[in-house]
């Protein structure tokens, strides 16, 4: 038992070098944070910031009580909002399917040439928010539902396309190989080998995106693309905060309901 002195008595979690790197990483992050903070708050007027609690209390008192009677004007715009989300999702999915097949390594007709294009479409659509698409489309085709629908559709391509092409790449190659061995054409291999395998993913992704789109379409009206957001914008412009609170309440209920529906449907499919 005396030999125990031969063992090291100091134990460290990591090697000294690894620890040094970890600390350096944290230090760099903290420095970067303060540097960014400095730049960001250069032009901040701190008087406004310190005034914020008073402003908040003021807005809060104006929001209450909500003007419930305003609700009767909101049903039409709410119906429009749901239509924007639904039709936009359908349009987006229709456009996303071919993009996904072009982007998936195992179904793309040309990995060298078409795949990068499809991937770029997906990234471009994903990086630009529906509100920005709506801003552009309102300027181009004028305010209204159509701009909202197209904006939602364009935004959905990236999301649906990305998840769908990942699902296609994860399909079981053995099932596809077996269909190929029967002498099926490329199109037949697609509908018999790949499509049945991705069907649950397809419906799940579509319904999930519909749920997100309901959320996004509620605010498209802020830039003139129709729906309940138009009413929000109008109420904000006239500083009718007691109407704003009614609209927010309605949006909240709609979002919660759509989330519930989408969870139910996804559960039923999978």
């Amino acid at each position: 038992m005396t030999e125990i002195t031969d063992y090291k008595q100091v134990w460290t979690y990591r090697t000294p070098r690894a620890r040094l790197w970890t600390w350096a990483g944290w230090f760099a992050l903290v420095t970067l944070f303060f540097w960014c903070w400095q730049i960001m708050t250069e032009d901040t007027i701190w008087a406004f910031v310190s005034d914020a609690p008073r402003q908040a209390a003021d807005i809060g008192s104006r929001m209450l009580p909500p003007r419930i009677s305003y609700m009767s004007e909101l049903w039409g715009p709410l119906w429009d909002t749901i239509n924007i989300a639904t039709l936009g999702t359908i349009g987006g999915v229709i456009m996303a399917v071919p993009v996904a097949f072009l982007a998936a390594r195992n179904t793309s007709p040309s990995v060298r040439f078409l795949r990068p294009i499809a991937l770029f479409i997906i990234v471009a659509s994903r990086s630009i928010n529906a509100l920005i698409w709506a801003l552009l489309l309102v300027a181009i085709i004028g305010p209204g539902l159509l701009a909202g629908i197209v904006a939602i559709a364009l935004r959905s391509i990236g999301f649906v396309g990305k998840l769908l092409y990942e699902a296609i790449e994860e399909t079981d190659a053995r099932q596809t190989e077996a269909v190929q061995a029967t002498g099926a054409s490329a199109a037949q291999v697609l509908i018999y080998g790949i499509v049945p395998q991705i069907m649950p993913a397809f419906w799940g992704i579509s319904v999930f995106r519909w749920d997100i789109n309901i959320r996004e379409s509620t605010i498209l009206g802020l830039v003139g693309a129709g729906g309940i957001g138009l009413k929000l914008q109008a109420s904000l412009n006239t500083l009718a905060w007691n109407q704003v609170s009614v609209i927010l309440l309605l949006i909240l209920v709609t979002v919660v309901l759509s989330e519930w529906v989408s969870a139910k449907v996804r559960h039923a499919i999978i």
Partner: peptide
């Protein structure tokens, strides 16, 4: 924005 004023803050 209504509470804290316009800008990145």
């Amino acid at each position: 924005v209504a509470m804290f004023g316009f800008g990145p803050f």
